[in-house]
């Protein structure tokens, strides 16, 4: 080591990263009301509770090495959230799933873990699939609104952000949008009312267009009114293929993991 330590840096330093693991997790039920920051705090504590050998950044206030792929908005459930952690010791990904899932509140559920084979998680995510339940909305009303929306080339909607109101186009990033009747049990606890279901695939753009914005778009374009707050769930994220399906962002790592696993 030559040269001097940068000014105001502590001596020593943190252990280097020896393994990167990508996690697939879900935000379910009441836990959908966690914000991204809430989840991040809970996850950092879960790391400590589960004894995960997390690596830390350098400096006077070291931070655990955790990076998140685009998080679902507060109030929206998700079956498809992703993050990556850097570890200072190697762990078995399957054991990590069990330990972290037990360390998190029920409803914040760790589903899968794969050792990162390189590349960037963010580069493998360019679209999201959402399911939106609309209690109190008939299938006819929903279908009509969807048709009108899809016919438009542009549907400007307003969103209140911390910087004030901004206008964005809710139509162009929408890859597909279909309306269906609820098939199984009433998804919301409001019994005895119709409930239309929207299936939506949206390309990731900046600023991102979220289920809320598409619903605003349905109101703008086709006067679709919602008597009860809707319930949205992210079903998948990944690389958008020509036929409109999404490729699991961990698939590439998984292939490498299988090929690269030395036989016992």
């Amino acid at each position: 080591m030559s040269g001097r330590r940068p000014k105001n840096q502590p001596e020593g330093g943190q252990a280097p990263v020896v393994q990167r693991i990508r996690l697939h997790y879900a935000k379910r039920g009441p836990m959908r009301f966690t914000s991204h920051r809430d989840f991040a705090r809970a996850f950092e504590r879960a790391i400590l509770r589960a004894g995960v050998p997390i690596a830390y950044s350098q400096g006077f206030t070291p931070h655990p090495k955790i990076s998140y792929a685009s998080a679902a908005p507060t109030g929206v459930a998700s079956e498809a959230e992703y993050l990556e952690i850097g570890l200072r010791e190697r762990v078995d990904p399957a054991a990590l799933v069990g330990a972290l899932d037990a360390a998190l509140s029920p409803g914040l559920d760790v589903l899968d873990a794969v050792e990162a084979a390189g590349g960037s998680l963010a580069d493998r995510i360019d679209a999201s699939a959402w399911r939106i339940e609309l209690p109190g909305v008939s299938i006819e009303a929903a279908r009509h609104a969807v048709e009108t929306f899809l016919k438009a080339t542009e549907v400007p909607v307003e969103r209140l952000t911390k910087q004030g109101k901004r206008t964005l186009d809710a139509r162009s990033p929408v890859v597909s949008l279909t309306a269906a009747q609820t098939t199984d049990v009433t998804p919301s606890e409001v019994a005895g009312v119709p409930c239309a279901i929207l299936d939506l695939v949206v390309r990731q753009v900046t600023p991102s267009v979220r289920p809320d914005d598409v619903l605003s778009g349905l109101r703008e374009a086709a006067d679709l009114e919602l008597p009860v707050p809707p319930r949205a769930t992210r079903l998948a994220q990944g690389t958008l293929m020509a036929q409109g399906e999404l490729v699991d962002p961990l698939a590439a790592d998984r292939e490498v993991a299988v090929i690269g696993t030395p036989s016992p």
Partner: peptide
């Protein structure tokens, strides 16, 4: 649950 999407910081009312 129906009211929470309309208020700020809903997680504080959820428990868990």
């Amino acid at each position: 649950e129906q009211l929470l999407p309309k208020v700020s910081k809903p997680i504080q009312y959820v428990g868990g």
